[in-house]
């Protein structure tokens, strides 16, 4: 089981620099009464999550990111990113990156596929760090509360894409823009370069294990230490460009989703053009 909040707090206190500890104390969240929000987020676990991801972020994937000024400092917003890597570490790295580069610190509330809450331990640990199951109701509540959502419109097919399809955006779902239009939130496109090569996938075994929809067949047994490049694009003001009632207009929603997809694809192309090597 995840450690109790007090143990998480002790570990975070012991391992985080003082300045970062103080900074994370300013984390804004809706305490439902016992230190947790209604979805299970707890600030001590967020700090603990910062510790857990620090080595991966700093040493292993050596994350470089730019465009943080495009992440709204407050209010509802949707981060929409490409998704890849056989194991969804990309979500974890965006989570850590947003936490580090927002002031006061914001938690990117990952909207995970339905099966994630069913995975023992992981489902609970991720919920403590702010993840929510991918139901429309959860996303709606969070946007109404002015939270920052992290959505991967490619969904599981993105994580499961074949190595030959890297950096080709898969079927781009439209729910993220529908939510953004309805609830008055801008969409921030995010492009991650690196994750698509971390664990080249060459096939999959269609067996459901512990809630996972399949078992990936990969060239490496664990993710390689590729370098992650995260880019945040300019917010797309779908909430200003469309009226809330247009959230029910399929053509308007498809059009808005296509704009987001094009922005993410452009960020990927910029990132690919800029990087000098997979590990560099």
């Amino acid at each position: 089981m995840p450690p109790t909040p007090s143990i998480a707090s002790i570990l975070a206190s012991a391992m985080l620099p003082d300045a970062e500890k103080k900074r994370l104390e300013r984390l804004l969240y809706a305490d439902a009464g016992h230190g947790y929000d209604a979805f299970g987020l707890h600030p001590d676990y967020v700090a603990f999550g910062a510790v857990l991801t620090a080595w991966l972020y700093d040493k292993y994937f050596r994350v470089k990111s730019k465009g943080h000024e495009n992440i709204p400092a407050s209010g509802a917003a949707v981060l929409a990113s490409n998704h890849s890597g056989a194991v969804p570490i990309d979500g974890m790295m965006i989570w850590a990156d947003v936490l580090r580069h927002t002031e006061p610190p914001r938690v990117a509330r990952a909207v995970a596929d339905h099966f994630v809450p069913m995975i023992p331990l992981i489902g609970t640990l991720f919920a403590r760090g702010g993840m929510v199951g991918g139901s429309r109701g959860n996303a709606r509540t969070l946007l109404e509360s002015g939270e920052l959502l992290m959505i991967f419109p490619e969904g599981v097919p993105g994580v499961a894409k074949h190595f030959r399809d890297r950096y080709k955006l898969q079927d781009w779902r439209v729910g993220h823009v529908e939510l953004a239009i309805r609830h008055g939130a801008p969409v921030v496109p995010v492009g991650i370069v690196g994750a698509e090569e971390q664990m080249p996938q060459i096939g999959r075994i269609p067996i459901k294990v512990a809630g996972l929809p399949f078992i990936p067949i990969t060239l490496t047994p664990f993710p390689m230490p590729v370098r992650y490049h995260i880019r945040y694009g300019k917010p797309i003001p779908v909430h200003l460009d469309y009226r809330p009632e247009q959230a029910d207009d399929p053509s308007a929603v498809r059009e808005a989703a296509a704009r987001v997809k094009a922005a993410v694809q452009a960020l990927l192309e910029e990132g690919l053009a800029e990087r000098t090597g997979i590990f560099a």
Binding site: F115, S135, G137, T141
Partner: peptide, 12 residues
């Protein structure tokens, strides 16, 4: 259920 909203409104 795992695929239903955590926050239960009256139309749940």
């Amino acid at each position: 259920q795992h695929d239903l909203p955590v926050l239960i409104a009256e139309d749940h």
